[in-house]
């Protein structure tokens, strides 16, 4: 299967957007080669602003650009925005509902060798608790391009979470990306894995394996964490009565929390959250870390077995 990092797709999508819309401007904080905004910078140097190692100033400046009619896309690593620049995101951008897009790369533990200081396990939780925010967590390169296009059309603040590592391409170019609408990637009746970002591929592998044992697993791809597709999640709870969530993020405050809250309110069934177990990451290869923190298909299979038992 072809593998592309979502940040690569982001870089290409920005150039496309730059051609279509002269109001699109891009800001970075001395990481343009890593976040891939450098492509936009090369094509549209006068609409590209490197702010240096100053993430808070970057988001504050973006607020001003947006207030004056521009559509700023800001990029750095997820630990630095929303992380470092959280208050600027909250007070200067989200509260006044300004049209700023924060597109952070290097989210999660697949950052790898740089270690815990650079591995954001909490960014979804931070942004999800802020009113007015839309959150996209693309699963592959195609979804990333569509999310960037969708973000440009939304009038308001959007957070897009991107990764460093190359991940499998799951979608055909012509699939329909609707903000706020979860995708049923695979039908099934015995349990549902609700996944986001790079965990969608793991979920599909797990479902494939379980099918061999006669367990029919539905896979939901929640590319929009906020607003959450309550209808599709409740449908999965009602029809399969057992849910596993999967995210490359702390099990606190991210997709797992959002799904558990929703299921509890509307249709209580067993929910098991697979994600980073409320710890900081560490140095290692992405693959070693996915294994150590329990984010592989095998872990999803074990989790499905668990909820399947509980449901009986």
């Amino acid at each position: 299967m072809k593998k592309i990092a979502t940040r690569e797709a982001y870089g290409e999508a920005l150039v496309e957007l730059g051609r279509e819309n002269p109001d699109v401007v891009v800001l970075d904080a001395d990481l343009a080669k890593s976040t891939k905004t450098i492509d936009f910078g090369k094509h549209f140097p006068h609409r590209f602003f490197d702010m240096g190692v100053a993430e808070q100033n970057m988001l504050g400046t973006a607020a001003g650009l947006a207030a004056a009619g521009k559509i700023p896309f800001c990029s750095t690593f997820a630990v630095f925005a929303p992380g470092r620049a959280f208050d600027q995101l909250r007070n200067s951008i989200a509260y006044p509902r300004l049209n700023v897009k924060i597109c952070a790369s290097h989210a999660g533990i697949t950052v790898g060798e740089d270690g815990a200081s650079h591995q954001s396990v909490e960014d979804i939780a931070l942004v999800r608790a802020v009113p007015h925010m839309t959150i996209f967590v693309p699963a592959d390169a195609v979804e990333t391009r569509k999310a960037v296009q969708a973000a440009a059309k939304i009038k308001g603040p959007v957070y897009i979470r991107l990764g460093r590592a190359a991940v499998p391409v799951l979608h055909a170019e012509d699939f329909l990306f609707e903000p706020g609408k979860a995708l049923v990637m695979r039908q099934g009746n015995d349990a549902t894995i609700i996944a986001t970002g790079i965990m969608v591929a793991e979920a599909l592998t797990a479902a494939e394996e379980l099918a061999k044992e006669g367990v029919s697993v539905r896979v939901l791809n929640v590319h929009t964490i906020k607003p959450l597709d309550v209808e599709e999640i409740v449908r999965a709870a009602k029809e399969t009565r057992a849910i596993v969530t999967a995210e490359e993020h702390n099990i606190i405050g991210g997709l797992g929390s959002a799904v558990a809250e929703t299921v509890c309110e509307h249709c209580p069934v067993p929910v098991h959250r697979v994600g980073i177990p409320d710890v900081f990451g560490e140095s290692g290869t992405p693959d070693q870390l996915m294994e150590k923190y329990g984010l592989k298909a095998e872990h999803l299979i074990a989790a499905v077995r668990k909820v399947w038992e509980l449901k009986k």
Partner: peptide, 23 residues
């Protein structure tokens, strides 16, 4: 993986590191 010599200095893991940095 497992080293005390993290990608960026971690004061919990390695003696002599006075404060964790990287950000």
């Amino acid at each position: 993986l497992g080293s005390r010599l993290q990608g960026h200095p971690d004061m919990k893991s390695l003696p002599g590191v006075e404060i964790s940095t990287g950000s």
